[in-house]
Simulated assay, not measured.
Amino acid sequence: MLTLFISQILDCTDGDLARLTGRVTRSGAYLDRVFDRFVDAAIVIGIVYLYPSELWLAGFMAVVGSFGVSITRAMAEAEGAECKVGIGGRDTRLAIIMVGLLYGYASGNAVSVYAATLWIVAVLGFITTLHRMLHTLKQLD
């Protein structure tokens, strides 16, 4: 949990520092987005690793939903559309995961809380993916 928290602080700080110092680059933005996907997957895989037989499906769906959010935005922007809509963006998903991890650890019922957390992330991911697809298709037509 502490590692996740520190990771997110550093992730936010590097972009802000680049903007403040005038060192924003397209390659830096690209690398940041790509590495964010690896971090997202690693977080979910780490949670599933704690109780693999109980959490594998929820974890799989959370990763797929999360990647759907990212790819719909990337593909929309590749087609010249703007696509920053949806309730399940990365910050929201990470906040839900952090709260779920803390609550699960404190509650003594970690498996159930972690499963619920991953399912919430998955559902929000799929809702946001669909929202972004519809939003983009309206712009492209």
Rank of each mutant, 00 (worst) to 15 (best):
V63S: 04
G28I: 00
D32Q: 03
V39W: 10
G15F: 04
R33I: 12
S27P: 07
V64W: 10
G22A: 09
V63L: 08
A62M: 02
I43T: 07
V48R: 00
F38R: 02
D14S: 03
G68K: 00
D32L: 01
A18Y: 02
D14K: 04
P52T: 06
L17K: 09
L57K: 06
S27T: 15
V24Y: 05
A18E: 04
G22S: 04
L17V: 13
M61W: 15
V34N: 08
R26Q: 15
A41G: 12
F35E: 03
S70T: 11
E54A: 13
G15S: 12
T25D: 11
L55T: 02
Y49H: 14
I45Q: 07
S70C: 06
A18H: 00
G46A: 00
G65H: 00
A41I: 15
V69R: 00
A29I: 05
R33Y: 12
G68T: 00
V24H: 03
G65P: 00
A42R: 01
V24M: 08
I71R: 05
L55R: 03
S70Q: 08
A42E: 10
S53W: 11
G22Y: 00
G22Q: 09
D16G: 14
G65S: 04
G15A: 10
F35Q: 13
L55Y: 08
E54S: 09
F35G: 11
A58V: 08
V64T: 01
G15I: 05
S66P: 03
F38A: 11
F60T: 15
F67C: 09
L31S: 10
W56F: 09
L20G: 11
R23N: 14
D36I: 03
T25Y: 05
D32P: 03
Y30E: 12
V34A: 12
I45P: 11
F60K: 04
F38H: 09
S53H: 12
V64E: 01
L57V: 12
Y51T: 08
L50T: 14
F38P: 12
V34M: 11
G68R: 02
V34L: 09
V63E: 05
V64G: 02
D14I: 01
L31D: 10
I45H: 02
R33P: 12
A29D: 15
Y51G: 05
D32E: 07
G28E: 03
V63R: 01
L17A: 10
G68S: 06
A29P: 05
D14H: 07
V48G: 08
F35I: 12
A18S: 05
R23C: 13
G28D: 10
Y51F: 14
P52Y: 09
G22I: 07
V39H: 06
D40P: 08
F38L: 10
D16A: 15
S66L: 01
L55P: 06
G59I: 03
I47N: 01
